[in-house]
């Protein structure tokens, strides 16, 4: 469940390996190659980005989106920027698309397909939100500013205490407690997100 709090695996350098993978390969075949054993290391990159930014997102979804984006634009890649930068951009695009997709679905009040409830199971586990509302809870969480998100993540998903996060230099006791209370209150109310929330999310990404 909480892959999110596990340590992200180390990213291995890709080197020039990409040339053999990309050469004259059509996107559907490349997609298959990239999923098979993750030769470009998109999984650790995705896990690393999420760990750094403290977004709540199911890593399988992010990986699939990153693989799809890499496969689609790979025929246009000629070696610049360097492959590591290019891959980081694909993972960033994928994160933006997954978060925006969820936010847009909530803004449009689209119900969640029960088969997709597992995508946001982490909100059920941590906050006891009913599965049909778990996507909204994730959108509300991800729309918090970076500092509040980091604090809430540490205090809930990671189970750290206020004393520990204060000792880690994440804020004063008053600041931490205020962010915690405001964050839990927002998650308690689960007001539908607005276009403004979506735009501020876009701005951060």
């Amino acid at each position: 469940m909480l892959e999110l709090v596990a340590r992200a695996p180390a990213v291995r350098p890709v080197g020039s390996h990409w040339r053999r993978l990309f050469d004259e390969t059509r996107p559907p075949e490349l997609l298959e190659r990239l999923q098979d054993g993750d030769p470009l290391g998109l999984w650790p990159r995705a896990a690393g980005l999420v760990a750094e930014r403290r977004f709540v997102v199911q890593l399988d979804r992010l990986f699939e989106a990153a693989v799809a984006r890499a496969a689609i634009v790979a025929p246009l890649y000629r070696g610049r920027p360097v492959i590591e930068t290019w891959l980081a951009a694909r993972v960033g695009d994928a994160l933006r698309s997954v978060l925006a997709k969820d936010a847009a679905a909530e803004i449009e009040r689209r119900p969640v397909d029960p088969d997709d409830h597992w995508h946001h199971a982490m909100m059920v586990e941590v906050f006891g939100v009913a599965p049909p509302l778990a996507r909204r809870a994730a959108v509300v969480f991800n729309a918090f500013g970076r500092k509040r998100r980091a604090l809430l993540f540490a205090l809930t998903f990671e189970g750290r205490s206020v004393t520990q996060v204060v000792a880690a230099g994440m804020g004063t006791v008053e600041e931490v407690e205020a962010h915690l209370a405001a964050g839990l209150l927002a998650l308690s109310r689960l007001e539908p997100p607005s276009l403004k929330d979506l735009l501020s999310l876009e701005g951060e990404l």
């Binding site: 469940m1 088969d115 409830h117 597992w118 199971a121 059920v124 586990e125 906050f127 006891g128 939100v129 009913a130 599965p131 509302l133 809870a137 839990l184 998650l187 308690s188 109310r189 689960l190």
Partner: peptide, 19 residues
């Protein structure tokens, strides 16, 4: 009116995992 702690997590999580 809160949406927090509204489901017994033990009941719903197994099904979510299985999907």
């Amino acid at each position: 009116d809160s949406n927090l702690l509204r489901v017994p997590r033990a009941d719903v999580l197994p099904e979510l995992f299985a999907k």
